[in-house]
């Protein structure tokens, strides 16, 4: 009984908040939110809304191969966006592929956020040697494009794993590689805010009581440095999805048994010049829609939370 009450109170607070006000008055944000919701909803509900199961090899029929989209004269209404070279429904493949893309994007961003926030807090609060070492590592890593770091980490981990584990662990390796390539952004932002917060008097008050460093960092500093992290995490989600697609496009990302949007684009790419454009264009469009909408939401969030632009 208490939970719906609390949820209702939370909803009421959200409806009165500046954020909701700013959201309602930004057509771009509303549009982006709708598109993002469509993408995420489609991905989550794929097993229930997809017309076919792209992983069910028994359901594939080679005579259905290379069917153009349904609105084409040769199209088949059973395959709204056409089929690929093995008679797989492109729409279903996209819905399932978006699941993988989103899973990798969210997990990698969560991993990068966790790592970056933790290291940034420690660097900013402890200062001295810990700060210098962590930040020099971050600086060095920032000089490389993150996709290069992800490629490197991915390659090294793949090479050091026994071959029979590749299929089972590939997904986690990709998540780890993308996450590790993105943490410096979080760490630097959090470190900067921590440097400001650690000298504020409420932190000194906690130190006078004699609270430990870890407790002060987690209960006092952390809640006050999370604002910018939320914005970076949202913007980073788009980048992580894109990084995964790039890795998969290059053939080093998720295993072919779990095709993501990047894998679909790579497969379709082979057919682009022979006229079967729909196999690559639709996954590409889905990727663009997903990344763009998430990025626009992140942009809006950044502006909405920036007191100077209010």
């Amino acid at each position: 009984m208490a939970l719906p009450g609390a949820a209702a109170a939370l909803l009421a607070r959200w409806r009165e908040s500046d954020l909701w006000w700013s959201f309602r008055r930004s057509p771009v944000a509303v549009g982006a939110a709708l598109v993002a919701l469509l993408c995420i909803g489609g991905a989550l509900l794929a097993p229930w809304i997809a017309p076919h199961d792209p992983f069910d090899l028994a359901g594939l029929d080679l005579s259905n191969a290379f069917k153009p989209p349904a609105w084409d004269a040769e199209g088949d209404p059973a395959f709204p966006l056409g089929t690929d070279g093995q008679g797989r429904d492109v729409l279903s493949a996209i819905l399932y592929g978006a699941r993988i893309s989103l899973l990798v994007g969210l997990s990698a961003t969560a991993f990068a956020t966790l790592l970056g926030v933790l290291l940034g807090l420690v660097a900013g609060y402890a200062g001295g040697t810990a700060d210098a070492v962590l930040m020099r590592i971050a600086d060095v890593q920032l000089t490389f494009p993150s996709i290069l770091v992800a490629l490197l980490v991915n390659g090294v981990v793949q090479a050091s794993l026994p071959r029979e584990l590749h299929g089972a662990l590939a997904l986690y390796v990709v998540i780890f590689a993308i996450g590790i390539s993105e943490w410096p952004k979080f760490a630097r932002t959090v470190r900067g805010s921590t440097l400001v917060e650690r000298n504020k008097e409420y932190v000194l008050a906690a130190r006078v009581i004699g609270l430990g460093r870890a407790r002060i960092m987690l209960t006092h500093v952390l809640p006050n440095v999370l604002g910018p992290v939320l914005v970076i995490a949202t913007l980073n989600l788009g980048l992580a999805i894109l990084a995964e697609a790039t890795l998969s496009f290059l053939g080093v990302g998720v295993p072919p048994t779990q095709p993501s949007l990047g894998t679909l684009i790579r497969i379709g790419n082979d057919f682009l010049f022979s006229g079967e454009w729909w196999i690559t264009i639709f996954p590409g469009a889905a990727l663009v829609a997903m990344v763009l909408s998430v990025n626009l939401l992140g942009d809006w969030l950044r502006d909405a939370l920036n007191p100077k632009l209010r």
Binding site: K200, E201, Y202, L204, A205, A206, V208, I209, G210, L211, H220, P223, N224
Partner: peptide, 27 residues
């Protein structure tokens, strides 16, 4: 105990007043 100069920086903005006051009691 110590009382600070800036009343705007000496209270954690994310905490409810009852938690701020209770902090030393809990510690």
């Amino acid at each position: 105990q110590m009382i600070f100069q800036d009343p705007y920086a000496s209270l954690n903005p994310r905490w409810r007043v009852r938690d701020i006051i209770a902090e030393p009691i809990r510690a």
